[in-house]
Design a protein around this nucleic acid. Structure first.
Length: 590
RNA sequence: GCGCCUGUAGCUCAGUUGGAUAGAGCAUCUGCCUUCUAAGCAGGUUGUCCCGGGUUCGAUUCCCGGCGGGCGCACCA
């Protein structure tokens, strides 16, 4: 067990001894400013506050019941009632030695593994994947990797947009103005062309719109020709998705598109009607407020000119068609029945938060028992903006295609690699550029707090200094370089390492390594990969200082050298594991 | 109009149960490559945490009211 966890458990026991009825689940030990110690707990102050007792007295009483002398120096009470813990140097070294023997990598498996359905990426058939998809795909994949690393069971499901009204227009276009050679050259571009032309025609000409609707009705009725064209459009789109996902290294367990849930939509609506959760209104069927919460917080109500008016979630249109709320409900039901998850997590643009609020409330009314055991979570994120502060577009004002974006990132990285490492063979420079370019895009997307919009900047993500993927990859490559040199040198052996921490730079790296697991847990709890980005950046900074100040291969003696080699190796392993968890590859040399 | 999100250094952004003197990168200035990769390191400068109240030992964080920005508001997803 990692030292901070030992301290935490003992502290909780001590608090129990002093305050037997206290809820100690919030009594936590967190890393803190090094001037105070390695770890700190401020939980006693809030406990004391709730009980109106003197916090310093509580700290003193707790400390009397607390014996952490096996792992810590003397515990200090500071300020209004902080407890400051400083690890014994020997404990730090032992923890690192255990890691060097492969017993752990500074994190542990979750005590109670969860089953989590992760819904992310969700591109649309017949449309190019664009820059917006990087967010859902990257964040979702990082969460998938983090949860799995911590021992949770993850079912990732790509809820592809393969059904809906747009297919009426696409079918009309396919039948009338399809350019076969163009389709073979670039299927998605051709499908996009069809859609744009027909869409414009429909806007201008109601008769054309009726034709499109007729094609859609035929498709929904199972017309053989329309079904086969529709399937072909899905197949062509899937090729595009697969190409992108393979470049990004993203994998899904399932890709159950919207159409998969078609058979159950009518049933869902009937059930909602039967249970009086939904009712008819203006020919459509919708779920309305049940008055269970104050109007201000009720998403089924909207205030118009001082009056509270209904703002229902429609589940069946007046023409008999279904809405995406219906599909999402059928999807929830399927997931419950198939995987019995503890959580279903949707990694979707924040703009859809209203939809999810309604969806989750309907779920609670529709499946009250399941709602007690399964938590639905919307992990939202902001938009990507251009440097003009407006949504990120190409110069000509089009959306930026994801494939083009990745190409450009790799190309820009290639130019830099050629400047910095001209001596490396061409193929290796290409490979470095691929890893650095893709890594830079992913890292830049994961670094900001997901809920805020961020400004997309080639220069920032590939500037190769500061908090960027290239900086982290560079730190990793520098470590690997030491080991290449070490292998070249005769007479150097690395037996079971005996870790000795003396220099402040060594201690800083060592302490930071110990917090890897805490960081992973925070990422999983809050669904925030940016915590891991910042952790890895700090690790790289600590390592770079160590690298500058502490010679490894030229250390004063063999014991120091071997200890430092072990520290290098552990740093490399955490960097690699951490980057991998963000979906970013590493290179041995750059 | 109503609701949701947001406002932190010149710029781009972090800020983990409310916690100690609010941090990083960029930019800018100054040093450091016959020594393991200088895509690096060391140091200097940088703040009305939008404004005003409230809660309390303590507020960038929580509550209320303003102001500014973004987004969403019945048959698209």
């Amino acid at each position: 067990m990692l030292p901070h966890k030992q301290i935490e458990l003992k502290l909780q026991a001590a608090v129990c001894a002093v305050l037997p009825d206290a809820d100690v689940s919030a009594v936590l030990v967190r890393p803190c400013d090094p001037k105070f110690g390695d770890y700190q707990s401020n939980a006693l102050m809030s406990l004391a506050k709730a009980r109106k007792i003197n916090p310093r007295q509580l700290a003193t009483d707790t400390l009397a019941k607390l014996d952490v002398s096996d792992v810590c120096e003397k515990v200090e009470i500071a300020g209004a009632g902080f407890l400051n813990f400083r690890l014994k140097n020997s404990v730090l070294a032992q923890t690192l030695e255990a890691a060097a023997r492969g017993e752990h990598l500074f994190f542990s498996q979750a005590a109670t593994p969860k089953t989590v359905v992760l819904d992310f990426s969700s591109p649309n058939v017949a449309k190019p994947m664009h820059v917006g998809h990087i967010r859902s795909t990257g964040i979702g994949d990082a969460l998938q990797r983090t949860l799995r690393l911590l021992g949770h069971r993850v079912i990732s499901d790509n809820h592809i947009g393969d059904w809906g009204t747009q297919f009426g227009k696409l079918l009309l276009g396919w039948k009338n103005i399809l350019d076969r050679p163009a389709l073979e050259r670039d299927a998605i571009a051709e499908l996009e062309r069809l859609y744009k032309i027909i869409n414009a025609e429909c806007d201008a000409n109601p008769a054309r719109l009726d034709e499109a609707k007729a094609e859609l009705v035929k498709l929904q009725a199972g017309d053989a020709e329309n079904i086969s064209i529709w399937k072909e459009m899905i197949r062509l789109s899937q090729i595009q998705f697969d190409t992108i996902y393979s470049r990004l290294g993203v994998k899904f367990d399932h890709a159950l598109g919207e159409s998969f849930f078609n058979p159950w939509l009518g049933e869902v609506v009937n059930e909602l009607l039967a249970k009086n959760i939904a009712r008819e209104s203006e020919g459509a069927v919708g779920v309305f407020s049940d008055g269970s919460q104050p109007p201000k917080e009720d998403p089924f109500l909207v205030n118009r000119d001082g009056e509270w008016a209904a703002d229902p979630a429609l589940v069946r249109k007046s023409d008999g068609g279904f809405n995406y709320t219906t599909t999402d409900l059928a999807t929830v039901d399927y997931r419950l029945k198939t995987w019995s998850p503890n959580e279903i997590v949707y990694v979707v643009d924040d703009r859809q938060s209203g939809h999810f609020k309604k969806l989750f409330l309907i779920f609670g009314r529709w499946k009250p028992a399941a709602a007690k055991t399964t938590k639905l979570v919307h992990v939202g994120f902001g938009k990507i903006m251009g440097d003009d502060g407006k949504p990120f577009k190409t110069r000509s004002g089009d959306t930026v295609k994801l494939g083009d974006l990745l190409d450009e990132a790799v190309e820009r990285a290639y130019k830099t690699v050629c400047e910095k490492s001209a001596e490396l063979p061409e193929a290796q420079r290409r490979e470095i550029a691929r890893v650095v370019g893709l890594g830079a895009v992913k890292y830049a997307d994961l670094l900001p707090n997901r809920q805020s919009d961020y400004i997309f900047s080639w220069d920032k993500m590939l500037a190769l200094q500061g908090n960027t993927a290239p900086y982290l990859l560079y730190a990793y490559a520098r470590i690997k370089s030491i080991f290449r040199k070490s292998a070249e040198t005769a007479n150097i052996q690395h037996p079971t390492p005996n870790i000795q921490l003396a220099a402040p730079e060594e201690l800083a790296v060592a302490r930071h390594l110990l917090n890897f697991g805490l960081t992973l847990e925070a990422v999983a709890d809050e669904y925030r990969p940016n915590f891991l980005c910042n952790y890895l950046f700090e690790l790289a900074v600590h390592f770079s200082r160590f690298f500058e100040n502490c010679p490894v291969l030229k250390a004063e003696d063999a014991a120091t050298r071997d200890s430092r080699l072990a520290l290098c190796d552990l740093t490399a392993r955490v960097l690699k594991q951490g980057l991998e968890t963000l979906g970013i590859e590493t290179v041995e040399q750059m």
